[in-house]
Every structure is written in structure tokens, then in C-alpha cells.
Design a protein around this nucleic acid. Structure first.
Length: 712
DNA sequence: AATCGGGGGCTTTTT
DNA sequence: GCCCCCGATT
């Protein structure tokens, strides 16, 4: 056991964290401070220096990607065999809960073959429940109902825990209750349910709780600032006996408040775990000095931080560049030419990233990149297992695996078309509802209510699925998938769709076959069959946004997607008030700090060069908008900034002292014309003129020196 | 059953 | 202004 090997590549703070005595420990890990390194080394230290057995350790992450990466790094560190690593539980909250529920489905009150609903499946089920409850979707938007249900679940509230309520409340609760009942009846588990079930299981079952509290003697959590209420309660329950929790997070990088993440979990850690130690990792190994200091200055404007100041040994490097574009096209031209130059200087394209606040901004950049012939990759959008054709194929597989899967039945019973129309389905649906049976079973009953043709079509469909299932029994997963694609007519359906869209869909379906071929199922004796595992995996891990792209590409993504990544060259675009910080965040009032954290996250992605851009004019929602530069820009001290082109906006002020309050987008008041907005300017000194769009619809050029424009 | 067009909406995302 | 969804139309 060579403990020095574990410590030798760590700095002082990292060592303190890795070698801390058991107990509650909060590691505040700044951007680029070696967070994953500390987590992985902590586990190595527990195993090698403390002789903790790997099955005694539980490590929780948020994304599959993070858990894969951690598993890989620990494997290398421990030089453990695959078998040794299998005993080490590393996974996402949802993945771990799924595993626990598979093992304890009975105690959790679930059928053995329970199915996982992804967000889309859940949405469809909610919509179905609404229809069954005779509620008008226009008044009760399924999206909002879904949100409401998840909200309750994340606070560990069941429908039965809610007061009866009145009016709207009463109906909401009725929907929630009906949704719960339907899920239970059909053996469906949505994402939040995975966690809630295990939480309730541990809470209500003392034996099991104590068993797992003993088993997982050491609990480690990554991205702790992203935990929601339920996840945090889940963790506390699990650690209740020993309080050995090693939580790593960064309050400054909390950017998911809008989806339930509670930064309070991090801020209140010392209160919830009395005697907890807090260690700060403040040495940054990523960015050069100017970039880091600029980012520090921005985040310094947030109140209510736990407090941390990152520093670096690295040289100051180039200053943060600031470009004031005329409009979004100018911005795109500037950015793309900057990347072209970077590439000409011998750098890789994929070391350059283009970051923005909202995905819609990517379009202009894409057009420019396309016209310059520069390969790029846009992150975001639908992921592999979320694509319609893939979900269609999965629905067939789900039916093969479980005939009672109503969601799957509804999705493909008439897709491709086989003469089973809306009327027939309505009858089947009603029958299923009345008798509390699945649609599959309802479709199999012949009570003479349906026309012979409709009944025949349903029988044919049932026969098709049965045949596919029978064939599947003697085949492996990939062959089953291939057979299903052929027999169902799905592949043929998309093949006759000429054009690019159909082509991509066929490619995706073919890709699904290779995904099935490469799928490594768990072959424990108590593991579910291969197909069930594949389906669960598809729900829990939606896969990459695009088929793996090996070409060296410029990276385009939202600021949120960029978290956790790093690039030599970063362009942070669209830094305008209203866009970033976003209008909706400003309107909500308390969300400015999260926007600022997002800015901090974006800036700290850059290793060598960071360029910030804003445009004076931007077309947004069909209107030209004149926006002031983001307040975040003015929060960066001048000493770290190099202005590549003075802003047109500040030029108005520079060229005309008398009109220094004038800038594009500013509301002004004119004695005669009333209130308006400054939309353009020209000239300098006493000749400076501005164009003002007045509220009455008139647009006028006014000479600043005479017009006496007052701020509105 | 596919296609057209009107209407609404329009921040960020993982599981 | 663009995109997606839904309903109506062929």
C-alpha cells in the first residue's frame, strides 16, 4: 500500500481533503481546481490507505458522463480489475436508485419488470391522464401538470400528503393522484420516482435502511451544489448513521436553480452536519492570470457566497479581449475570422469554443462557419435515444418485453399505418379504462363492438408483436432489433421517405442496431434480461447529441452545456443586457446572481484566450433590438481588458459630452415629441446627431446639441 | 395519411 | 423572424 503515491501529485489543500479523517467534509472546489482529482484520490485513499473495501463506498454524480469518467480514473489509480471495480458503486442518483429498485422491487411495491419513463414518456402519460380526467389541455397544459407533479415528488410529497384543496388546487391534486395510480397500475417509474421510491423505502424499512447505512460507510457526492431537495434528503438519510459524507461542489458554479437545484444544500451543510470540515480548493490550474482575475472580479459582485478567491501560478497571459460588434452578423464574422486565424496558427479547431446564453444564437454562427467551410459541432438538441424514430423502435422493443406497456402500445400500434384509426383506439382505450386492464389486453378482447376489419387489424398487430417476441427468445439483442425493424415495417417506412430527413432516420435506426450489438449487459444471475437492461439504459442514458463526430470541429454550445469543459480559446458571445443576463432572469428579480455565476462558468472555461462579444443591434424574436452591453462586462477591471474596437455605444458619449447620457437603446424624453428610443447616431462633437424612434411611431434625426433630450 | 398553413411561443438541461 | 404543433384539407 503506497500512500505517498496517492499524495504526490496533489497540492496542500487537495491533500488535506483527500486525507481528511472520516466524517462530514465539504470541499469547495473552484473552477479548474482539481475537483475530480480530489474525488478520485479520496476513493483511492480510502481503499489503499484506510483499507476500506470498495463495496463500502458509494459515489454519486449527476451525469453518466461524470460517473464514467470517475470510474475510469479510479480504475487507473487503483489498478483495479473490472471485477474489483464492479463492487464499487459509482453512478448517477438515478442510476443507483434504479439498481436498488431492481434489487428490492418487492419491498418497494413495484412489479419486477417495472419500466422507466423518460421525460417524453412522462409527458405523454400526463396528457393521457388529463384526457381521462376530461380536462381541457388548453386550460391545464400537460407541460405544467408534469412540472407540478415533478415539483411535488422532488419535495417528497405524495398526492395523499396534499390537502384536499379547492378549485384549481383540487383539480391539480386529482391529476397528480390519477397519474400516480396509473403509474402504479402499469408499473411505470418516472425519473423523480426512482429517487422518491428509494427514499421512501429507506425511510419506512428500518432493516433495509440499516443494511445500506452499514454497507455504504463512505458516501461521496460530486457537484453538490446541484442537488435538489429530494437528493439531499436521500443523502442525509443514507449518511444518518455514520455522517461520512464527502461533498464536493462550488457555490459559484450553481447554475441549475431553475430546475430545482438548491444552493442552500451547500450553504447549509455545516448546519446540517455539525462539526463538518470545510476545505477550499482555490488554486486554479486552467486559466491564465488575466482570465482568472477577470472572472474573479465578476463573481465578486455576488453577495451570499461562501467565499473563495481563485489564484494561479500561471503567467498573466493575454488580456481578455472585448469586441463591440455592430450586429449579430458582424459578431459572427469577427468570431469566425478569429477562429480561422487560430487554426492557421497551427491550433486544433476543437480547442476553440463558441459559447452563448441561448441556443437560438447558434444559427448565425453556423451560417458563417458554413460559408467559411469551417467544420463545427453544435451541442444540444435531441439526443440519440430521444429521437422520434428511435423512440418508435424502442416502443416495439418495449412491447416485446412487456405487452402491457400502454405508452409503447399507443405509440406504434398504428405506426407505420396499419389501418388502426382513432376510433378503434378510442374503443380500446375505453375498454382498458373500464376494466382496468392494459390496452394490449383490451385490444385482444372481441366483444363484437368493433368492426370486423378493425378487430382484424388489432389481431394482426398483436400477432406481429407475439411473433417478434417468439423470435427474440432465440436471438441476441442486435438480431432482435434488426428483426423488429424489418417485421414492424418501421425501417421500410422511413426508407421510402426520400430526402435528407428520411436518410438520417434510417441511419439512426441502423445505429440503434449497432448500439444493441455493442451493449454490454450485466450478466449477474439476478440481473434482468438483456432487453430490459437495454431499455432501462436507453431511458437513463439518452446518449450523445449527435453520432460521434471524429472530425476536428469548432465547438458551439450554450453556457450551461459548457460547464465542466475547458478550451484554449473561448468566445463568449451575445453579452448584452436582456440576452445575458437574460430578460427573464432580470424580470424574476432574484435570478441575477445565477446569471452572473453562469458568466463566471463561461469565462473560466478559457485556458489561454478569452474574447467577450456584444452587439449594438440584434434581431431577436423578429425585432431589431438595441441593447446595452452586459453589466457583467463593466464588472471586469480595465486592467484585464483589451478593447478591440471601441463600442459604438461609448462613442456617442465620447464624441459628445453634452449628450453623454445618450446611447443606443436608451429611452429619452423630448419636449415636443415625447418619449422615444435612441436607435442610431452619426457625427461627432456639436454635429452629433441621433435617430430617435418616438412612441407615436415617428422616427427623427435630432442634433444632440439643440434637441435637449432628457433621460426618460 | 400526408401536407399545408395558421397561431403561439420564444432561456438554460439531466436523469 | 423562425420553428413547432395542431387542425383542416386533399
Amino acid at each position: 500500500m503506497d500512500v505517498t503515491r496517492i499524495f504526490e501529485r496533489l497540492n496542500e489543500a487537495q491533500r488535506r481533503a483527500v486525507g481528511a479523517p472520516p466524517g462530514a467534509l465539504l470541499v469547495l472546489a473552484g473552477a479548474g481546481s482539481g475537483k475530480t482529482r480530489v474525488l478520485t484520490h479520496r476513493i483511492a485513499w480510502l481503499v489503499e490507505a484506510q483499507n476500506v473495501l470498495p463495496p463500502r463506498i458509494l459515489a454519486v454524480t449527476f451525469t453518466n458522463k461524470a460517473s464514467r469518467e470517475m470510474r475510469g480514473r479510479i480504475g487507473k489509480l487503483l489498478q483495479a480489475s473490472d471485477d474489483g471495480m464492479r463492487n464499487l458503486w459509482i453512478g448517477t442518483f438515478h442510476g443507483l436508485c434504479h439498481r436498488l429498485l431492481r434489487m428490492h422491487f418487492e419491498e418497494a411495491g413495484l412489479p419486477k419488470n417495472f419500466e422507466i419513463l423518460d421525460s417524453d414518456d412522462q409527458f405523454r402519460l400526463v396528457r393521457r391522464v388529463l384526457r381521462e380526467q376530461q380536462l381541457d389541455e388548453a386550460y391545464w397544459p400537460p407541460k405544467q401538470m408534469q412540472w407540478m407533479i415533478n415539483q411535488h415528488k422532488e419535495e417528497a410529497r405524495r398526492a395523499r400528503d396534499l390537502p384536499a384543496g379547492e378549485g384549481q388546487q383540487q383539480i391539480l391534486h386529482r391529476v397528480y393522484r390519477a397519474y400516480e395510480e396509473t403509474c402504479q397500475r402499469l408499473g411505470m417509474v418516472d425519473f423523480a420516482e426512482l429517487l422518491l421510491r428509494v427514499f421512501e423505502l429507506f425511510r419506512n424499512n428500518q432493516l433495509l435502511r440499516e443494511q445500506y447505512q452499514r454497507r455504504f460507510e463512505h458516501v461521496l457526492v460530486d457537484e453538490f451544489q446541484d442537488t435538489n431537495t429530494l437528493q439531499y434528503r436521500w443523502l442525509r438519510l443514507l449518511c444518518d448513521a455514520h455522517k461520512n459524507i464527502f461533498a464536493v461542489g462550488d457555490d459559484d458554479q450553481s447554475i441549475y436553480g431553475w430546475r430545482g437545484a438548491r444552493i442552500e444544500n451547500l450553504l447549509g451543510f455545516e448546519r446540517d452536519f455539525p462539526g463538518a470540515e470545510v476545505i477550499r480548493l482555490e488554486q486554479n490550474y486552467r486559466s491564465s492570470g488575466n482570465i482568472l482575475n477577470a472572472a474573479n472580479a465578476v463573481i465578486g459582485h455576488n453577495a451570499g457566497r461562501l467565499g473563495k478567491t481563485l489564484w494561479t501560478d500561471a503567467p498573466a497571459g493575454t488580456k481578455v479581449r472585448l469586441y463591440a460588434a455592430d450586429n449579430e452578423f458582424d459578431e459572427a464574422r469577427f468570431v469566425v475570422s478569429g477562429i480561422a486565424e487560430w487554426v492557421q496558427n497551427g491550433n486544433r479547431r476543437d480547442s476553440a469554443a463558441l459559447l452563448y446564453r441561448s441556443n437560438a444564437q447558434s444559427r448565425v454562427f453556423e451560417e458563417q462557419l458554413l460559408s467559411e467551410g469551417m467544420p463545427y459541432r453544435v451541442y444540444g438538441g435531441l439526443r440519440f435515444f430521444e429521437r422520434a424514430e428511435i423512440k418508435d423502435a424502442l416502443a416495439y422493443l418495449r412491447l416485446i418485453s412487456n405487452r402491457d406497456s400502454d405508452g409503447a402500445f399507443e405509440r406504434v400500434v398504428n405506426h407505420p399505418a396499419r389501418g388502426i384509426g382513432a376510433k378503434t383506439l378510442e374503443t380500446v382505450r375505453r375498454r382498458a379504462r373500464d376494466q382496468q386492464i392494459s390496452m394490449w389486453k383490451a385490444a385482444g378482447e372481441s366483444d363484437g363492438e368493433l368492426s370486423a376489419r378493425a378487430a382484424g387489424a388489432l389481431q394482426k398487430f398483436r400477432q406481429l408483436i407475439d411473433e417478434m417476441a417468439a423470435a427474440a427468445a432465440g436471438m441476441d439483442l442486435a438480431d432482435t432489433t434488426e428483426e423488429m425493424l424489418a417485421r414492424s415495417g418501421l425501417l421500410a417506412h422511413f426508407k421510402k421517405d426520400r430526402g435528407e430527413r428520411g436518410e438520417t432516420r434510417v441511419e439512426n435506426l441502423e445505429e440503434l442496431v449497432s448500439a444493441a450489438r455493442n451493449f454490454a449487459a450485466d450478466d449477474d444471475e439476478d440481473a434482468p434480461d438483456e432487453l430490459s437492461q437495454f431499455l432501462a439504459n436507453a431511458a437513463l442514458e439518452a446518449g450523445e447529441g449527435q453520432a460521434e463526430e471524429w472530425e476536428d470541429c469548432v465547438q458551439l454550445m450554450s453556457l450551461h452545456s459548457a460547464k465542466g469543459l475547458e478550451f484554449d480559446l473561448v468566445f463568449l458571445c451575445g453579452m448584452e443586457e436582456g440576452l445575458f443576463p437574460h430578460q427573464r432572469a432580470l424580470a424574476e428579480g432574484n435570478q441575477l446572481e445565477e446569471e452572473r455565476r453562469l458568466c463566471y462558468v463561461g469565462m473560466t472555461r478559457a485556458m489561454k484566450r478569452l474574447t467577450l462579444c456584444h452587439a449594438a443591434v440584434r434581431r431577436l424574436h423578429g425585432h431589431e433590438r438595441y441593447a446595452r452591453p452586459s453589466r457583467f462586462l463593466s464588472e471586469i477591471p480595465d486592467e484585464h481588458i483589451e478593447e478591440l474596437r471601441p463600442s459604438r455605444i461609448s462613442r456617442i458619449a465620447q464624441t459628445n459630452n453634452a449628450a453623454s447620457h445618450l446611447e443606443l437603446g436608451r429611452r429619452v424624453l423630448h419636449k415636443k415629441f415625447g418619449e422615444g428610443v435612441v436607435v442610431d447616431f452619426e457625427g461627432r462633437g456639436e454635429h452629433a446627431r441621433v435617430r430617435v424612434d418616438f412612441a407615436g411611431g415617428e422616427s427623427k434625426w435630432l442634433v444632440c446639441a439643440y434637441a435637449e433630450l432628457a433621460p426618460a
